[in-house]
Structure formats: C-alpha cells, structure tokens
Design a protein around this nucleic acid. Sequence first.
RNA 1: GGGCAAUUAGCUCAGUUGGAUAGAGCGCAAGCCUCCGGAGCUUGAGGUCGCAGGUUCAAAUCCUGCAUUGCUCACCA
Length: 584
Amino acid sequence: MKKYIQKWQTLIYETLQKIIPHSGEPLSITPEFIIAEIPPRPELGDIAFPMFLFAKPFKQAPKQIAEKVAGVLAQTPDGNAEASGPYVNVKLNRESVCREVIEEIIKKQTGYGEVTELEGHKIMVEFSCPNTNKPLHLGHLRNDAIGQSISNILKANGAGVKKVNLINDRGIHICKSMLAYRKFGLGKTPGEMNMKPDHFVGNYYVAFSSWAKDDPKAEEQARTMLKAWENGDKEVLELWKRMNRWAIDGINETYKRTGISFDSCYYESKTYMSGREEVLRGLKEKIFYKKEDGSIWADLTAKGLDHKVLLRDDGTSLYITQDIGTAIQRHNDWPFDRMIYVVASEQNYHFQVLFHILKLLKKSWAEHLYHLSYGMVNLLHGKMKSREGTVVDADNLFEELTLLAEKEIKQRERDTKIDNIRETSERIALGALNYFLLATTPGKDMVFIPEESISFTGNTGPYLQYTGARISSILRKYDERRDAFKNAEVVYKLLTVDEEWEIVKLLLSFPEQLILAGKELNPSYITMYLYELTKHFSRYYHDNPVLHNDDSHLVVTRIELLKAIRIVLKRGFDLLNIPFLEKM
RNA sequence: GGGCAAUUAGCUCAGUUGGAUAGAGCGCAAGCCUCCGGAGCUUGAGGUCGCAGGUUCAAAUCCUGCAUUGCUCACCA
C-alpha cells in the first residue's frame, strides 16, 4: 500500500502546486509530508488526503481545496480522485493492483513476508530464562511467546537474530529445593515416581516453603548451602548437578511441546564468576564502594536511582552480579548491535540499574541494551500467587487446552476426517495459546481466559486455523478437478467483488505490518492483521463460491487469490508460532 | 512516602505521527443451511474514552492537576 500512497502523495503535491492562489503562500513541505489516511468506510475510497493543513497558506476553506484537487485528478491511469468535504478520496485502479499483488505473492511464496528494514543488524534476543527449581508457568508462556515471535519478526525484517536463553541455575532459591530434597526426598527419582522431572523438583521447592514457615533455621541453612556451593563443595555440587539435570530435561520437554527453541544457552552458574570479577574490578577503580561489613555497592543516586548491592558481605553473588557477567560474555561471544531482554515489567527497575551499571563499567554497547518489558498475566478471578497455589502450570494448562480442542473435534464429528486427533488437538492448543498471549500489547498486563482462548469462534487462534484449513480444503478440491479448468485463464478484471478488493488491499499491507511489528517489537500487529484477513475471507467465501462457478476464468482467478491469501496466512502464523493446519 | 505504568461497551482487548459517525471478540437479542467444511455469515442493542482544566481549525490521542489500580524501591530472582 505504501507504494501507492507515495505515488498519490506526489500526484496530490503536484496538483496543489498548480492550484496555489495568487494571494497564497508556496508549499513549505515535500510530498512525503502530505498526510495520507485510510478512509473510515471503504466505499469512500482507498486512500484519503485531508486538506486542512493547506487552508492557512492557501487562505481557502479545506473543502474548496479538496474540490479543486479532485477536479484535476478525477481520472488517471492509477485511479480516480473525488472530493468529500475537506478530504480528497482516491480509488485505486483495482485490476492493476490485484494483478501486481497476487502475482508478486505467488512468485515470492512465503518470501513475500520478508522485508529488508533491518538488514545488516545483529540483534540478540534473550527470553524465557527459567529457574531450575520449578517448572514453567503461565508467565513463562507469555515470555516465550513474545520472545520467539519477536525473534521471528526481526528475522523477517532482515536482521541477524540470535535467540538466547539464560538458565537460572544458581542462587539461594536453587539451594532451597536442594535442601528440601536432601531432607525429604529419600533419594527418590522422577522416574521412580513416574513424574515429569521439573515438576518433581518443583515439589521440593514447595516443600521448602512450608518447612521454612515453621523452622526459622531453614533460611539460614539455605544460605550456608549457597556458600558451600560457591566454594565448590563436592557433595552439594553433586546434588545440584543431579537436580538441575531433572529440571532442565523437564523444561526442555515443555519447550519442545510449545515450539520454543534457542540458538544458544547461557548458564548463570558459568557467568556469575566473571560478574564477580567485574564488580571487584569496579571496586578497584573506585566505581563502586565497600561497606564496613564487606558488601560491595554501587551509588546510583546521581542517576536518580538508589544504592545497589552487588556482592553480599559473605562474598556470594546476587542476581545482578551474574547479569553483569552474562551481558559482558554475550557481547564477547557475538558482538551485537542490539540486545533485547524479554523480561516481565516487575523488573523494570532492575534493568534500569543493570544498564546503568554497565555504563559505569564503561561498556560502550550498554546503550544498545533494551528491556522489552511485558505485563503480568492475571486470571479472571485474580492474580497468580504462588503462596495461594493459584499459579497456572504451563504443562497442565497446555494439556487442558489440548483436551478441550479434542472434545470440540469430536463434537463436530471431524474425528473421522483427521489423521491424528491428538496431534491436531495439540496444534490447535498451541495456536490458541500463542494467539491469545500475543494479541495483547506486550507492555500491558493481561487477563488470560483459557476457555476463551481455545474457543473456535471469534477472535481466536483456532478461528484463524479453521479459516486456513477451509482455504486449504478448497484448494485441494481445485487440484482434484484441475482438468476441468485446463483452458481457463487468470483474468484479474474479473475480481470485481468489493470483498475481494478489501482482501487484496490487506494482502498489500502485510509487509508494512511486519515492519511496524518489528519497529515496535509488538507481535499484536500481526495478530490483528491476520484476524482482519481471515474475517474478510470468511465473509467473502460465504457469499461468493470459488469453485462452483459457470465461468471457469473466474474460478481460476479466484483460486489465484486464495493461493495468495493462504501464503500470507501461513507466513503470519509462522511469525506467531501458530501451527498451520491443512485439516482440522 | 519516592519512581514507573495503566484506566476505552457487562467482560477481554484494538485505536499509527492529533483528523470523517471511537472499533473488534465474547456475552445478549433477532435472522440465514437445495450452498466449496455452519468451528461460518448478517443485523441490532450496549460508550459523558477514570475525573477536572488547558493547547487548536480538530483531542481517546499532546500538557497540567487529581482519583483509582498494578509493579517497584531486598545482602530474592
């Protein structure tokens, strides 16, 4: 669409130049600054140009200016202009636009969703970052969905993207589940208990909490264990390795199920030391200071921030210590132009502090670090609170959604027409989940409603998947009857239905939405776009038969349109990690 | 108490750099199957855009104040 808007901006600009009244002032802008809009109702036209801005220099009412401009541009090879109050509304030449767009999409296939906006940029994206003391929950699912999708979107914008995970495998919280296991675990294994191993580990983290409630010594023992861990205590390390393996194996299973992957994986246990060294170096260079008790601090009050502790008085590391080390190591490993941290908004302050500390440490790249902050995921009946046991476990939720999808399939009596019901249900569940999590702007808190997400009607992932399956079904039928259309030709002039035109305009704007989504780091531009596209398609094919037409030229032309829609849908689904289903 | 953010229909969410009558979905009400898959389509009701000022041709959008809610200011991560 941009291409056509630019063309018309120039045409409007040239026309305005011609009609400047003698008493008026010359135009002080260039064509690209002429405001172009999409009219509120399609029957008004395809592009709208408000004339308000020219009223002052022309010393004329916007309405009069619009009429004059439209008079000059009423009939052109590129389309027609007409005045509507203070607006000049343009209707594009449908036939030529239809041809250009549909042919381009079919020629490029899914490459149609590739733009060069960020070519040459190296962008590292960190997301997920699980703790190895418990399984993933709903909050992680939003994190994963955003991280994965943003990476896809940046890649489609031409950037070199490296997806990285950071395994939170050290620290006092890890010691807590270890302690509880040592105390209550009796050497059992997840295999013996027939449990998913990360859930097995998570149970001991819960066990620690209830133990610590009655026994004040529990917290102290955890601190002692952390010290032992950092000092390389053999028995502690042995236990740590064993339990970490369980947790990570389980978490990887969830990633696999939900289509999440990484290019490389960092471990806090391997980076915290370099963070500590960096802090000590900073101390030596008097960037930081030491308190009497031996703890090391940064004074950030000059920046309007607080004082921040970087190393405990017993010398052990904190969250921020290892974050410093990790950032430095990453930039050494893969010198990025930008680094995006996908982390919940509750850590906004932490990242302000982290980025500033890295600047204090004179890391020139620190200003290219960006915290992509996403809001909390709440439930309809309130917040998720681990203490109240209302945390939604990722695996359980996914299973719940899968079963709901399976039930729907059976209810619709589609089970005989689908090859693998379980697999299809899982793919619908994933589509439902990712669509729902990505449809809300990342920065905002959101309410997750499982039943609504899996609903097969309305603005949901499954509805999108259904539409994709319907298109696929029509194209399959066309293939089967191909011989009947041997002599038919594609004639774009035949696409005269308004709904066809709306769809073509949408196809035209896909690359622009992709650029926007990349610029704003916001996948919801894609979810909104895909919903618009599927809604228009549903309306269209409800009233306009594709295959059941006497005119075989019309059939093959509409088939071209459907192929183009399918390509764009597929590409859009890929960006959001929503599986495309041929049948469902 | 300080900082950051949010507030749009009963509920969940859109609303580009200020621009034509503020939009979807769910739910509610009423319709549509001799039709490529009815998981669909059509129509309707439902809004003082948190409140009060200001900026201007024009404000949900920009500015100021207030209210409410969330997050945060830990030797947790």
